[in-house]
């Protein structure tokens, strides 16, 4: 085998090795369910305010309103999760559980995706 091929194969092996040996950033430990429930309740209490703001931001545009709501939701979830030392996924899961425990109390149906004609 030519030395150039050895170099090529070596680079491929190093690349695969780096990808496989890469270590993920540390995750928060599993959260106390009571903490998650409390955080979820706090977030859910703010939903009407976020929905109202989204209606003002995108008057008459249902999908954009829903999308703007979810943007505020995810920003707030990340901030609260970081403050409380819980994972973002766990907090989203807690929100999902609360919606199932209290069905029909909030907007839970799909708002069909209708991307805006303009983004520029």
């Amino acid at each position: 085998m030519s030395p150039f091929r050895v170099v090529t194969l070596g680079c491929a092996v190093v690349a695969i090795g780096l990808a496989l040996r890469a270590t993920p950033m540390p995750s928060p430990p599993a959260a106390d369910p009571a903490v998650l429930t409390r955080l979820a309740s706090e977030l859910l209490a703010q939903e009407p305010t976020w929905r109202r703001a989204a209606r003002q931001q995108f008057p008459g545009d249902q999908w954009s309103q829903d999308d703007a709501f979810h943007n505020v939701e995810q920003i707030t979830v990340r901030v609260r999760a970081a403050r409380a030392g819980v994972s973002v996924g766990e907090l989203f899961d807690a929100l999902d559980r609360d919606l199932r425990v209290h069905p029909g109390t909030r907007l839970v149906h799909a708002v069909p995706c209708k991307p805006r004609p303009f983004y520029d």
Partner: peptide, 27 residues
Amino acid sequence: YFGPMQRGSLSCWEAYPVPESPLLRAD
């Protein structure tokens, strides 16, 4: 975050209007 939890997301964005039923529910 939702896929690994075995949860779908009704919140949807794509570059085209995805045919999405308003009858879908999350609860």
